[in-house]
């Protein structure tokens, strides 16, 4: 999916995602707003754990992938956010 607005951080982009698909929020984050232990979020190819977490900056055209760290190493592409 693509986000029409231009969020400057990952947290803002996710907020846009929650607004469109409210059910996704609790699957990705805990009730305390932390990304779940076995969910990985990437901006481009980089895991956000190394880029500032939810405060990671976005640039125009950034692609966000949310993938569960399935046991055994498999990855399931789930959501891609392309920020204009």
């Amino acid at each position: 999916m693509e986000i029409e607005r231009s969020p400057s951080t990952l947290a803002e982009a996710l907020l846009a995602l929650w607004t469109l698909y409210p059910g996704v929020r609790d699957r990705i984050t805990t009730e305390q707003g932390q990304v779940r232990e076995h969910i990985n979020i990437f901006i481009g190819d980089e895991n956000i754990r190394y880029t500032g977490g939810l405060a990671s900056p976005l640039s125009a055209g950034s692609e966000i992938s949310i993938v569960p760290a399935v046991s055994g190493g498999g990855k399931i592409p789930l959501i891609r956010n392309r920020v204009r």
Partner: peptide
Amino acid sequence: SAAMASVSPAPDPNAPRT
């Protein structure tokens, strides 16, 4: 299973789905 609701309207046919 609401997490799946965000799959893009033209999903990759080869992508695994739960």
